[in-house]
């Protein structure tokens, strides 16, 4: 991955928190981060409680988060960071065939996902991508995103969150298995732009999810639908 000096500089000293209950994976991820000279391992914990405590102590730049933790779902941590408005990015540690929970995490505000069986290089690549403002996207997740954001929704924010033709084309190419480099080439974009697009689409899903939740709540009469004060 070609990087400019400024970017290297910006990445330097990035603090990463690893939240993973499986000791072997946790150790491996911690080691990978430790070995990298630009990344600093803030902490490596195995439960939500410990993670909360670590976040209380200091906010890291990035959290590698496993969802199925012994004391709860990792999404709770994402919600907490969102509530506090923390600038921390979250990468969900996912296993194969777990697209549903990855999507749920992205909807909650995660920046992307990381496959548990990724090679060391892939782990670092995914982390860099996120720190550079991008997001990793698998073909399967691209399809799910297209379906979620393309389908005409009754949610009021449907227009805001509907995919633009460019984004749809990008997702379509990703779904056919093209890498970011290949997509960039086909669409005549810079590689970093493609990654940013992915991130934008993730944000749309997040907004879409919120809008839909709000709409459903309104339908159920949970919140008032009249006036901005609601």
């Amino acid at each position: 991955m070609a990087q400019g000096d400024s970017r290297v500089e910006r990445l330097a000293g990035t603090r990463v928190l690893v939240v993973e209950d499986e000791a072997r994976t946790r150790r491996r991820l911690a080691a990978v981060i430790d070995r990298d000279r630009q990344l600093t391992l803030a902490d490596a914990v195995g439960t939500l409680g410990e993670a909360d405590a670590a976040l209380d102590r200091s906010l890291p730049d990035l959290v590698l988060l496993d969802l199925g933790l012994p004391d709860g779902n990792g999404v709770r941590l994402i919600h907490r960071l969102q509530r506090e408005g923390a600038p921390t990015e979250v990468l969900v540690i996912s296993v194969m065939g777990d697209e549903a929970s990855v999507l749920a995490a992205i909807e909650a505000g995660a920046a992307g996902y990381l496959l548990k069986d990724s090679t060391d290089a892939e782990v670092l690549a995914a982390i860099r991508q996120v720190l550079e403002g991008g997001a990793p996207l698998s073909p399967s997740i691209a399809v799910h995103l297209m379906r979620r954001l393309k389908r005409p929704s009754h949610a009021p924010a449907a227009c805001e969150t509907a995919l633009t033709p460019r984004e749809t084309e990008l997702l379509r190419l990703i779904a056919k298995g093209l890498s970011y480099e290949e997509v960039a080439e086909v669409m005549g974009l810079r590689h970093s732009t493609v990654a940013t697009y992915a991130k934008i689409v993730y944000r749309k899903l997040q907004v879409h999810g919120r809008a839909e939740a709000a709409f459903e709540a309104m339908q159920l009469g949970l919140v008032g639908g009249r006036g901005p004060g609601g």
């Binding site: 073909p139 799910h144 056919k176 298995g177 093209l178």
Partner: peptide, 18 residues
């Protein structure tokens, strides 16, 4: 193969490509 998105063979091939 069990992923609903991969019921579309083009997406399944995309996964394989990756």
């Amino acid at each position: 193969s069990l992923d609903p998105a991969c019921a579309d063979l083009s997406v399944a091939l995309g996964m394989l490509r990756r």
